[in-house]
Computed example of a mutant assay.
Amino acid sequence: MCTPRCSSSRRATRRRSPTRSSYATGWTSSPRSARSSGWRPGTTGRDDGHMKIAAGQFTSVPGDIEANVGSMQGLVRAAAGQGAALVAFCELAATGYDLDLIAGRPELWLAEDDPRLDPLREACRTTSTAALVGCAALTSGPRPSISALVIGPDGELLARYDKTHLYGEENDVFTAGTRDGRFTLDGVRFAVAVCYDNRFPDVAERAKADGCHVYVASSVLDEHNDSFGEGSIRSG
């Protein structure tokens, strides 16, 4: 089942599921300029001084980018109808979290302007909603990165973040990023992280020092794996 969800929090929070899922975490240091309001069906929420951020949860079809993009564009439209300004999808949502599959099929590695993302770009453009898309992305080297591509409300690429802290066997398939993730939406500065990045408090500490109001993390977890360990994120 595909379900857009929004949550309200001023501190780093987590949503956990017994199956693989996605969630976004966030803290805000300025509740007037960046506050996730509650998910209230039938309200838009864009004109009351709040910003709604939706976590787009669905089960990816392994290796089927077209089907997964179709699910994501549908969730963007549904979340936009409830007033979301940003929809965050899970780590490797475009392909599913299947490391062997990704390693063996380079055609699954997306370019920043990949035409297979066009239906999602169109959904963002026609609804004036941004989307954070988890994917395997092309790099200048022989391996892809685990990336979050942020498509802006105009349908153009707003930012790209490559996961800097790879976990376990990810090191055999991907290239680690070297830069922190940042973007600005509706005047609000965001920090971006992916899954295992959240084990490292300095990621969130740099975001706060850099003036970010929202920390959005794209993850894939199962019931035995929690990348948000005790003390992994601190906010104040």
Rank of each mutant, 00 (worst) to 15 (best):
S33N: 10
T127Y: 09
L108C: 05
C124Q: 06
V61Y: 12
D48C: 01
M72G: 00
G49S: 02
C124M: 09
A79Q: 11
W39K: 01
Q82N: 11
M72T: 05
T129D: 00
A78Y: 13
T43Y: 12
C135E: 09
A80Q: 03
P115K: 03
E107M: 07
S140T: 08
M51D: 02
R116W: 08
L120D: 00
L138T: 11
T126N: 05
G70H: 09
R143A: 01
A67Q: 14
W109G: 00
V76R: 08
G70Y: 08
G49I: 07
D118G: 02
S71P: 03
A67T: 15
T127A: 13
I53N: 01
L86N: 00
A130P: 07
R121F: 11
T127M: 13
A111T: 13
E112K: 12
A80D: 00
L117E: 01
R77N: 08
P62C: 04
T126F: 03
T44C: 15
D48W: 06
R116D: 03
V69A: 02
L138F: 03
G74D: 13
A103Y: 10
G38D: 09
R143V: 02
D48E: 03
P62A: 03
S147K: 09
A34C: 12
A94H: 09
A103G: 06
L92K: 04
N68M: 08
D100P: 08
